[in-house]
Design a protein around this nucleic acid. Structure first.
Lengths: 149, 149
DNA sequence: TATTGTTATACTCTATAACTATA
DNA sequence: TATAGTTATAGAGTATAACAATA
């Protein structure tokens, strides 16, 4: 068969098409694999951000994830509702909330990370370990350059 | 600086995070570069699909792009409104619309493709031609496998 | 006056269900 | 009755503007 998924060589070679559909495919796999953990892929990103880093305000976390602060409010509402993160008023500046993982959050993060690993494995399919690492490296190189918006 | 965009090594190494943000970055560049052409990135995908392939019904086109047929209706409404594509009732089955590019559509496609090429160049940045080709190939390999859902 | 978190609101993208015209 | 296109509607995900508490 042709190697363009039926969309023809022109569209099938466009980087934006390839990236979008690669992301959508991997997102679908995450939806499947994360379902039993009760954590969505977007929430996993927040948990991973909070883990292994000093406690931060909501706006600092939002800036790192490149989402609006109002978006961060709803993400944290959901995570706090599940008892996975805690908001705590910063005593030195009571306008700010310091957010951190709870013990339950740390356990959920471990489970969700395992599920995400499995989704990645399914996504990478027959790619060799070398190719998989290469894909990750190339993506890192093109994204990190643009981060300092 | 660290090579994770400030999100830490855990999140910065997740494939779903890398793919999403790579896509969003490239999408932003397309928004900029395509603006003067009057065609969006999503519309460019439809134009590329219609080009270089026999005329198809709306549902056939929708299936190839993996969008719902109702989504295809609004995409085509916009493109037809700009005079870039034409719907024509199939004389052999008057329920179906055969869709095709107009001459204006072919000109817009040429312009938009050039703009998209430039967006890709900006996105790929300092990557060598070999690395850029490799990235495209790796993405093609992981996506095409999953297409025949 | 400026900033943090919040709420209300709106816009985009997408899909599901119901309608129409043809088959 | 089944199918292609359409319309109405709803649900994510995201952002802008206005507000309350605090600085």
């Amino acid at each position: 068969m042709s190697n363009d998924g039926g969309v023809g060589p022109q569209l099938g070679a466009r980087l934006i098409y390839l990236l979008k559909h690669a992301f959508l495919d991997l997102e679908d796999l995450h939806t499947e694999n994360l379902a039993p953990t009760g954590v969505t892929a977007r929430e996993l990103a927040v948990l991973l951000l909070l883990d292994g880093r000093e406690p931060e305000s909501q706006q600092q976390a939002a800036a790192r994830l490149r989402v609006d602060r109002t978006t961060m409010v709803s993400l944290l509402d959901a995570l706090e509702g599940k008892g996975l993160v805690a908001r705590q008023a910063d005593p030195r500046d009571r306008r700010r909330n310091v957010i951190g993982l709870t013990d339950t959050g740390r356990r959920a993060l471990a489970q969700a990370t395992t599920a995400s690993d499995e989704a990645e494995r399914r996504f990478l399919g027959e790619l060799s370990q070398t190719d998989a690492r290469h894909l990750r490296d190339l993506l890192r190189r093109v994204t990190t350059r643009l981060v300092q918006h």
